Simulated assay, not measured.
Amino acid sequence: MEVLATDTEQLIKDTAKKVFFAEGRLHATTQEIADAAGVNRASIHYYFRSRQKLFDTVFIEASTEMRNKVHSVFEEALSFKDRIGKFIEVFIEKSLKHPYLEMFIVTEFNTNPKIQLHTLRPDNEKEKLKQLEIDIENEVAEGRMKPITSHNFILTLMSLCSFPFLGRDIIKNAFSINEEEYQKLIAERKGVIMQLLFLDA
């Protein structure tokens, strides 16, 4: 039976996600999180014992939420091209909500290789990869895609989706654009990515 979080516990987790993943304050202290949540620091210690435990909890929750939302797209009865388009939409939507989550995922994997990979991997991974290979072969045969392996397709898709968020500050600085202009650039991403992946986009 699932144990539901108390209102205070949920408030702390929601605030921590905002501080860590929306605002990018990876090194925020428990006091800063408590202040942002409007609770005392003792409440964080009561529910999570330590800052690291709180971080681990919200990291896994946010990663799992993104994973479930993204992988649910591939369960929909859509064409392969439409599923990829929906995947891009969902990925961008989740990344706009938590723009620094991708950076934290990369950081966590680099510093802790033993992190639980199942929070990000799909169920029946081998079967899904095989189906992806079949879908790509069909698209290539129909002249809608250039030949590409399933692994390179995944790498290309994820790179095109992730980098605008991983390199958010670099991009804004390099292009000398403000937040509004950056958001406009992100809004154009789906169309650009689809044109790069599909010949008939």
Score class of each variant (00 low, 15 high):
G24E: 03
I193W: 01
T107S: 15
R51A: 02
I186M: 00
P164F: 03
K126F: 08
I88M: 05
T156L: 10
N110D: 12
E9M: 11
E76H: 05
E179K: 06
D200P: 01
T149F: 08
L101V: 05
L197E: 03
L155D: 11
I154N: 08
T8C: 07
F198Y: 08
E102I: 11
K13T: 04
G143R: 12
L129V: 13
A16I: 01
H98S: 04
E65W: 03
D56S: 07
H71Q: 09
D123Q: 13
V106E: 12
M1W: 10
E125D: 12
A187T: 08
T6E: 09
K81R: 15
T107H: 13
P99R: 05
A34F: 07
T107W: 08
N124D: 15
S159M: 05
L199M: 15
E139H: 05
Q31F: 05
M103V: 14
Y100M: 06
Y100C: 05
Q116I: 13
G191M: 10
R41F: 08
F153M: 09
K86I: 00
V192F: 08
E142N: 15
D7T: 15
M158I: 05
C161D: 00
I115R: 07
N68D: 14
D56P: 04
T111I: 13
N110Q: 15
I170C: 06
N40H: 09
T29I: 11
A37G: 06
S176N: 14
A42R: 13
N40P: 07
N124E: 14
K17L: 03
I92R: 01
G38T: 06
K146D: 14
I136P: 00
D35E: 12
D169I: 02
L197R: 00
F165E: 01
A77T: 09
F153E: 01
A36D: 04
R51W: 04
L96W: 12
K172H: 09
S150A: 13
Q116R: 14
R67D: 01
Q195C: 11
L199S: 10
S150V: 13
Q195Y: 10
K130G: 13
T156E: 14
I105V: 12
L185T: 06
L11N: 08
Q52H: 09
N68K: 14
V58F: 03
